[in-house]
């Protein structure tokens, strides 16, 4: 199951990088996040109630940020169980300046697997569902960036 694409986000590369790897922002934007606790550097125990349309399930597992090359790229690994099946996904996220440096182009290349009973029925729907969740995630992150810049501007 592949999920890839790119989005243009509001803010310079370093700011976007910091936000995308900031646990607080992740906690806000991971869909239905109920738990996101750091257990070792870059590794978070996570509970998400995620879904699209009529489909909803609970993800219990870990989210790991690794290979951090600020402000260019990092790897996000998601591993755990979702509604009785296992899921594992690895995403490479890379950032490049855009719009003369005021904006950032974020490119993500993800590959995931689902197994267990979920695979028989869920497999077919997982890729489009994952894609929708990823879009929601980046839209939320962009919202975070905008509001941080506004508050930043007010303070500074």
């Amino acid at each position: 199951m592949k999920v890839d694409g790119n989005v243009t986000m509001s803010g310079p590369q370093q700011v976007v990088y910091d936000t995308l790897s900031d646990p607080d922002a992740l906690r806000q934007c991971l869909p239905g996040c109920e738990k996101f606790d750091e257990v070792s550097p870059g590794r978070y125990e996570t509970v998400l109630k995620a879904g699209v349309a009529g489909i909803k399930g609970t993800f219990i597992g870990t989210v790991t940020l690794s290979d951090a090359k600020s402000p260019e790229s990092y790897t996000l690994t998601v591993e755990g169980s979702f509604s009785g099946g296992f899921v594992k996904g690895v995403g490479n996220i890379s950032l490049a300046p855009d719009g003369g440096g005021a904006k950032t182009k974020v490119t993500y290349v993800g590959d995931g697997q689902v197994g267990g009973p979920l695979a028989s029925v869920g497999q077919r729907l997982m890729a489009p569902a994952a894609r929708m969740v990823v879009n929601q995630f980046f839209r939320c992150m962009d919202g975070q960036l905008k509001s941080r810049q506004e508050t930043g501007a007010q303070v500074g």
Binding site: G54, K56, S83, P117, L118, V121, G122
Partner: peptide, 20 residues
């Protein structure tokens, strides 16, 4: 609430608890 008609899309989702 959810409508149940033939159940052949909904019941598989219920069984996987992807819908509750």
């Amino acid at each position: 609430a959810k409508v149940l008609a033939g159940g052949h899309s909904l019941i598989p989702l219920l069984k996987l608890r992807l819908a509750s």
